[in-house]
């Protein structure tokens, strides 16, 4: 089936890890794929992609004008490719002023949604962006949160509306006109084989067990860190010391104070309970 397979997530939720896995799985090489050659999975908000395919430049348009063209861009790309193509996306699943979705069903061949405990997202996102924890937690609760939105400069990506962490999750899990397979970051760690295999099958891939095992070995967190140490990572923002920083589950326990934990739990209680991060009493579950 041809079309775009969306790798959707809030930032710092395992999306890049999965892209490295895919690069290894589809590259089918004995050597680990370079983290700096993940070009096959482009990001939906790429300015370059937009300018190349539309015929004129996004830099002469407002962010809303750009958004109105984006659904057509994805339909165009889906028709242009011969097989399925993977595309990373951090935008929330949104409907535009004209009630068209930003990501149309016609462009879509499948979708994975990566979700991670927001307590850990807060720690990772803060390090990634160079923000303190309180700022990060406030942004994760802000339904107006967008990235690349400043109108006085040219960002290298198009504007992306992320909404709050909870709204982002619900937008992709509940509001899409197509099926979305949810992948928990914690499961990627605890049961890698089953989790990666199920995600691969959900988007129509049919890899062998050996293929999955080798791709997993080549995309282990330690390997990614080692690669970043040696050659750097082009996708690392300048604000971050490292992109592949810790990758751990539960580092919020050492990093966040009680008030910060309480605030995240209050902000995102419903979605955290729904995805197994809180019990019915609102207590954080062990991983």
């Amino acid at each position: 089936m041809s079309g775009i397979i969306w790798l959707a997530s809030y930032p710092k939720s395992g999306n890049t890890w999965f892209r490295v896995f895919l690069g290894n799985l589809l590259g089918d090489s004995d050597e680990p794929a370079s983290i700096n050659r993940l070009g096959k999975t482009r990001i939906a908000s790429s300015r370059l992609l937009f300018d190349d395919e539309i015929g004129f430049e996004a830099s002469d348009l407002t962010a809303d004008e750009i958004d109105r063209l984006r659904p057509e861009l994805y339909i165009h790309l889906a028709q242009k490719v011969s097989g399925p193509v993977f595309m990373k996306i951090h935008d929330a699943y949104l409907y535009l002023d004209n009630n068209r979705p930003l990501i149309p069903r016609d462009a879509t061949a499948g979708a994975l949604y990566f979700i991670r405990n927001p307590l850990d997202v807060a720690v990772s996102f803060a390090h990634h962006s160079g923000w303190d924890y309180d700022t990060t937690i406030a942004r994760m609760a802000d339904n107006g949160f967008t990235s690349c939105e400043k109108s006085d400069r040219l960002h290298n990506q198009l504007r992306q509306k992320l909404l709050s962490w909870s709204s982002h999750v619900k937008s992709w899990v509940d509001q899409t006109p197509f099926d979305v397979h949810v992948v928990r970051y914690e499961d990627m760690h605890k049961n890698p084989f089953q989790t990666f295999a199920a995600a691969s099958r959900a988007v129509g891939l049919d890899p062998s067990d050996d293929g999955i095992l080798l791709a997993l070995e080549h995309s282990s967190f330690q390997r990614l860190q080692a690669q970043e140490d040696v050659e750097g990572f082009i996708e690392k923002p300048p604000s971050a010391k490292k992109f592949f920083r810790s990758g751990k589950i539960g580092s919020w326990r050492e990093e966040l104070n009680d008030a910060q934990v309480r605030r995240i739990v209050e902000d995102h209680r419903e979605v955290m309970q729904r995805f197994g991060y809180l019990n019915v009493h609102g207590e954080v579950l062990d991983e």
Partner: peptide, 18 residues
Amino acid sequence: TGVRYQASTDELLLCVDG
């Protein structure tokens, strides 16, 4: 055919919304 242009050997049509 791009999203907002079409091109052939001798001609190119560009459509900018609005």
